[in-house]
Design a protein around this nucleic acid. Structure first.
Ligand code: FES
Ligand code: FES
Lengths: 141, 141
DNA sequence: AATAATTCCTAGTAATTATATAGGATTATT
DNA sequence: AATAATCCTATATAATTACTAGGAATTATT
């Protein structure tokens, strides 16, 4: 019941892009240095975010990555699901047929409730919200 | 981000014990048959529940397992944590030192919120609640 | 046209975790 | 003594995780 490093690194990568949005594309090299992750590993995580339509890439020299849409339109739930797969704590929440007795299983209902609680938190937070929180944290006071 | 089979089987085992509470101890053989799990695998899951103080065992012939306290005093959160370990989606929620920059990491706050949401659902449901739901599901109507 | 810097693609790999199974020791009832 | 249950420890296998490696494709600059 842990998020994989894919999700942790990938979410922080998205946050990094959001914070550097209005400038030139962000090179993976810089992103990796700032986040303390190897370029090679990020290279493997990034495609999921691109396929999901969250980021756009610019190839060749001076290339890099930018957000493909407004930070306010990207929910953390979408990011994590793109990286992690479904957040249902058990498979039968998504596919009731997966458990033969899902119609008469009380635990099933509880797992569904857990899923919903996660959805509410992560679905209610956008990348813009996250960036704002980060700015508040980094702000000198 | 899935619960292991330990958690799923273990929770169902606890539910089974709760439903057969007021009678004689439940043999693993019967529990396993009802839940569709091998006795040998259950044997490996059960000790965690016993060590946590949720169940009591009776050895020898006519032995078996019973709840060690009232079903209303056992929260699903406790059961799952006994079987699964901490439900924090990332380690730094439990150990802030684990991430070097946890004090200035916005994602950290979100992961903490996710943990809390799970806690609220699973901490707010007791084994008695679960048993009641199960009876409602099984009831002929 | 050559160079350099970037993303893109595919494969490999070591370590860990998940999901069991197996065999026998211990305990208590009859 | 026989039986039936829990208890304990070891082993096996498969899947997943967290990377690393090498090079191909693309593009701005010179
Ligand atoms: S229906 Fe899947 S756990 Fe019960
Ligand atoms: S502090 Fe652990 S993920 Fe940021």
């Amino acid at each position: 019941m842990k998020f994989s490093t894919r999700s942790r690194y990938g979410t922080r990568a998205m946050l990094d892009l959001a914070l550097h949005d209005n400038s030139s594309p962000v090179r993976l090299k810089d992103l990796a240095r700032r986040q303390g992750v190897s370029v090679k590993y990020l290279e493997q995580i990034i495609p999921a975010l691109k396929n999901a339509g969250f980021i756009r890439s610019i190839r060749g020299i001076n290339g890099g990555y930018t957000l493909a849409k407004g930070a306010g339109e990207i929910r953390l739930l979408d990011i994590v699901e793109a990286l992690e797969g479904s957040l249902s704590p058990v498979d039968c929440v998504d596919m009731p047929k997966w458990c033969p007795r899902s119609g008469e299983c009380a635990t099933h209902e509880v797992w569904r409730d857990v899923r919903k609680a996660i959805d509410d938190v992560l679905g209610g937070t956008t990348l813009a919200d996250l960036a704002e929180r980060q700015r508040a944290l980094s702000e000198p006071r």
